[in-house]
Design a protein around this nucleic acid. Sequence first.
DNA 1: CTGAACTTTCAGAAATTACTGAAATCAATG
DNA 2: CATTGATTTCAGTAATTTCTGAAAGTTCAG
Lengths: 199, 199
Amino acid sequence: MKLTPITEAFVLHFGEMGSRWGISRTVGQIYALLFVSERPLPADEIAEVLNFSRSNVSMGLKELQSWNLVRLQHLPGDRREHFSTLGDVWQIVRTLAEERRRREIDPTLSVLRDLIMETPTNAADRHAQSRLREMHELIELLLRWADDVQKLDPDQLIQLLKLGGRVVALLELKNRLPLMGKGKGKRSSDADIDVDEML
Amino acid sequence: MKLTPITEAFVLHFGEMGSRWGISRTVGQIYALLFVSERPLPADEIAEVLNFSRSNVSMGLKELQSWNLVRLQHLPGDRREHFSTLGDVWQIVRTLAEERRRREIDPTLSVLRDLIMETPTNAADRHAQSRLREMHELIELLLRWADDVQKLDPDQLIQLLKLGGRVVALLELKNRLPLMGKGKGKRSSDADIDVDEML
DNA sequence: CTGAACTTTCAGAAATTACTGAAATCAATG
DNA sequence: CATTGATTTCAGTAATTTCTGAAAGTTCAG
């Protein structure tokens, strides 16, 4: 089998990009190939198309599996294992976020917590700890937010993304709304909302 | 000069983390050291404390400068250049996001756009392009959102983060509110808000 | 200008990481 | 349960990246 120019260009670019991240060029290319492939591919076909050794592909697929980024399936009448990426791009982002968190953020948070607990022995330590505390707090905040957002269903998420910065208008709205309920007369029931209770 | 155990542990961890990212262990350690340091440090002091060659530190600082992550300043009565990180952790996140976008996302978007424009020559190409289009759309959406959020001032941002997933409640609120204005009687002026106009 | 203090460059050494082919392991089929 | 086809492991090699020391470059005080 041979790659079309479009697929080849994408695969090559993705390989380069991969190496700016933690993953190797090989792994990046394998993923890119699977991502645009019409059907799941067996390892030997990947090796042939990308000109990697069969064992290299095996390693790469193993890594991608450890990231939960590829699915393994058996096709009827073929003993080989076939691989494909997740179909839903949103799910891919989700998985990526989860894994990166598990591998990079969580260990860092744990180190930060430990170091913040230590008893400082001098002014330098006290300053260092206060910096670490800032970093810890920031990460925790971002993480909690990411957790919450993870839970949204895609439609809500997209709505939110499309709203973008204008969400601030909503925040202001929220800050002003409670006034409305304060004994200023009953409104029609379909708009009867207690914002503070909601939030 | 010698590192305290707290600083040393942080520097070592950050170095390891750095190498999971695109930056080298050295660069990670230099950054970590500057991050917790009470005062700006000159290159030779960094080299001494971290046990790197002076030239290695020079390279590392150059890289950090290219990321806009360190500031260079001159202290009175000292000819050497002194380096420090940005003081505000939010600013650090912002800078990091900007740089990563410039180096990784933008080039990818450009490749995707080009490939989507190509005329497909077969079914495989058509499928590949539709996948690339999905990816392109997703990235654009996330990017636009990030752009918008960048513009918020820190207070608004923090408020938003703290709100987390409950922001959805606000979305629902928005979807229900417009009903209120539709000739159901005048409300008090301080709560007179046209949501659709705001958003 | 000159020289001292500091910084950067760069070619090669050292260390790390990626890749391969051969051998071992595993699994399905008859 | 043996054969065949598929996959993984692993030890060694290749490629890449990181790091160093020596040399060149820069800047500034005198």
